[in-house]
Simulated scan of single mutants.
Amino acid sequence: MRDELLALQTQLSYQEDTIAQLNEVVTRQQRDIERLTEALAQLKKQFDEMPSEQLDAQEELPPPHY
């Protein structure tokens, strides 16, 4: 009985450590997602603010392989 209790306590300890590591990963990923979302919003704003003449001029350039 004592060995079984010790085995369960050991297993619980490993699971708690794994959960803590996973929590750190999820937290870091959430920060990355928030940072990337903000960067995307800034790029979209810059693109929307570009004058249409500038966009048209870029579209008329021939491809680089010509």
Rank of each mutant, 00 (worst) to 15 (best):
E49R: 12
A20C: 06
E16Y: 05
M50L: 15
A7L: 00
Q58E: 01
K45L: 15
F47I: 07
R2D: 05
Q15P: 01
M1H: 06
I33E: 04
P51S: 13
Q58D: 00
E16M: 04
P63A: 10
T27E: 03
L22Q: 13
P64Y: 00
E4F: 02
R2S: 12
V26L: 12
R31N: 13
A57W: 02
L40F: 14
V25S: 10
D3W: 06
F47G: 00
A7W: 02
L61G: 00
F47A: 13
A7K: 12
P51A: 13
E38N: 13
H65P: 01
A20D: 11
L8Q: 05
L55Y: 04
E38R: 15
E4T: 07
Q29H: 12
S13P: 03
M50W: 03
L43E: 07
M50V: 14
E49I: 11
Y14D: 08
R35E: 15
A39K: 14
T37E: 11
R31S: 07
Q15K: 14
D17E: 15
L55T: 12
L40T: 12
R35A: 15
Q11C: 05
T18E: 15
S13H: 08
A39I: 09
S52V: 07
I19L: 11
L36E: 14
E53F: 09
I33A: 08
E60F: 07
Q58I: 00
L55S: 13
P62T: 00
